[in-house]
Design a protein around this nucleic acid. Structure first.
Length: 428
RNA sequence: GGAGAGAUGGCAGAGUGGUCGAAUGCACCGGUCUUGAAAACCGGCAUGGGUUUGUAGCCCAUCUAGGGUUCAAAUCCCUAUCUCUCCGCCA
């Protein structure tokens, strides 16, 4: 959520900045609603204040044993008038809040202006794609031939976009997650967390999946009049970041750095027909997530570092990649700045996204009221939140299978994974 | 799943209709004293929102959450959630 002040005092400038990401802010409507809100809120609160004063005087008069009937008469119609205003104000505030919750974050100045994916800017490359002197196979063919990827039975059990892994492939998938988790906890300073895979609506509102992107989620328990619904997490960013919701963190405890390995569930409602083959786009996939909570002045530097932590995984695995900075039109809803890391996939002869690292600045923390208190400060301030994949495990498996394939269809196990696989050097 | 008890500020814990946003203790911050520290003493110390040039003042809201009763609710009523105790079941 944006600072409400932007939507009140700097409406035009805010609208212009939002336009760079393709979001059209209804300036006229907002302006009118805001004007109405101001007068209504002031008059409602004034009315409330006068009633509070009268009620207080009734109490005082009673304490002295005086007759309260004349004062009671003064209250008269005040209550009804107040109730009516309160209802009107609540409806108006709800309308304004609904708008505010649907407005994406302002892009950071350093994000390149652009309309879509094609205008993202590559900022660095690492590694050299291996030259193969044979016809490369894609991960589907490799995995099926090795008996490690079973798409057919997954369809039987559940449906498309699910996978069954077996044998050494399943073991490598597990090894990858273990390796990533160990790297981030022992070398990068993150604290490992085990978190719920089902979260409530407040959490999803906090990180920005709701109210706008509910159709991308799997909802396991519908909301009722009494209670909130529960949904499967689309990323561990949701539980990890929401740990800080409604809390004030001591300055000395910053930065908070957390990591978790979890399955992620996405309905991929808007992607029918895209990446239908293979493991690239699944309804269920594993991911090791990195989350940082930092002071505002540190967040841009933290984004660089976090992105570096994710890149280190690829370097240690010896997988070529490139890092791009997303242009304004391609960034996610809550991000102020995003780096995507794209790994080289020889069978597709291209780079494919394997990590997305974003600085959300105070966009999420304002929704969550996640704050910190500086020793010298009188009031708490909003944190900046960052998150990134470090990395998507399934896609990393795809990259290892394709980049480490041999002519006979076997897979060489990357050095760093061998310790996690009982010393195994080759699959197949 | 059955029975009962509870939820108050960073923590502990008073408060059962009216100057209660809330006693007290601890923690924390500032000061006095001290060579320094501790102790003692003095003072300060919730959050969100509105108004405003204002981190000044004033106002509104908040005692788990949502409804209700009342001129007035931390306090009474209803519902939900969570916690604890006992029984049952279970990895």
């Amino acid at each position: 959520m944006l600072d409400p002040k932007f939507l009140r005092n700097e409406l035009e400038v805010t609208a212009e900045r939002l336009a760079t990401r393709g979001f059209i802010l209804d300036v006229d409507r907002l302006g009118k609603l805001e004007e109405k809100r101001k007068s209504l809120q002031v008059s409602t609160e004034e009315l409330q204040a006068s009633r509070n004063a009268i009620s207080k005087s009734i109490g005082q008069a009673k304490a002295k044993g005086e007759d309260v009937a004349p004062i009671m008469a003064k209250v008269g119609t005040l209550g009804a008038e107040l109730d009516a205003k309160k209802v009107e104000l609540a409806a108006l505030l709800e309308e304004l809040n609904a708008i505010a919750m649907s407005v994406p974050n302002l892009p950071d100045e350093s994000a390149p202006i652009g309309a879509d994916e094609s205008e993202n800017v590559e900022i660095r490359r690492w590694g050299t794609p291996k030259e193969f002197n044979f016809e490369v196979k894609d991960h589907v063919e490799l995995g099926e031939t090795l008996g490690g990827l079973d798409f057919k039975n997954a369809v039987k059990l559940t449906g498309s976009r699910f996978i069954i892994m077996k044998g050494q492939i399943a073991r490598m998938h597990r090894a990858l997650a273990q390796f990533m988790l160990d790297l981030h906890t022992t070398e990068h300073g993150y604290t490992e967390a085990y978190v719920p895979l089902l979260v409530n609506e407040d959490s999803l509102l906090g990180t920005g999946q709701l109210p706008k992107f509910g159709e991308d989620l799997f909802h396991t328990k519908p909301a009722t009049e009494e209670g909130q619904g529960l949904s499967l997490i689309p990323t561990a960013e949701v539980p990890l970041t929401n740990i800080a919701r409604d809390s004030i963190i001591d300055e000395d405890d910053l930065p908070v750095m957390m990591t978790a390995h979890t399955p992620c569930f996405r309905s991929e409602a808007g992607s029918y027909g895209r990446d239908t083959r293979g493991l690239i786009r699944q309804h269920q996939f594993d991911k090791v997530e990195l989350v940082q909570l930092v002071k505002p002045e540190d967040s841009m530097q933290a984004l660089e570092e976090l992105t570096g932590h994710a890149e280190t995984v690829l370097q240690k695995l010896g997988l070529p990649y490139r890092t791009v900075v997303l242009c304004t039109g391609d960034m996610g809803f809550g991000a102020a700045k995003t780096f995507d890391i794209e790994v080289w996939l020889p069978a597709q002869d291209t780079f494919r996204e394997i990590s997305s690292c974003s600085n959300m600045q105070d966009f999420q923390s304002r929704r969550m009221q996640a704050r910190f208190k500086a020793k010298s400060a009188k009031k708490p301030s909003l944190l900046h939140t960052l998150n990134g994949s470090g990395l998507a495990v399934g896609r990393t498996l795809v990259a290892v299978l394709e980049n480490y394939q041999n002519e006979d269809g076997s897979i060489t196990v990357p050095e760093v994974l061998r310790g996690y696989m009982g010393g195994l050097e080759t699959i197949g």
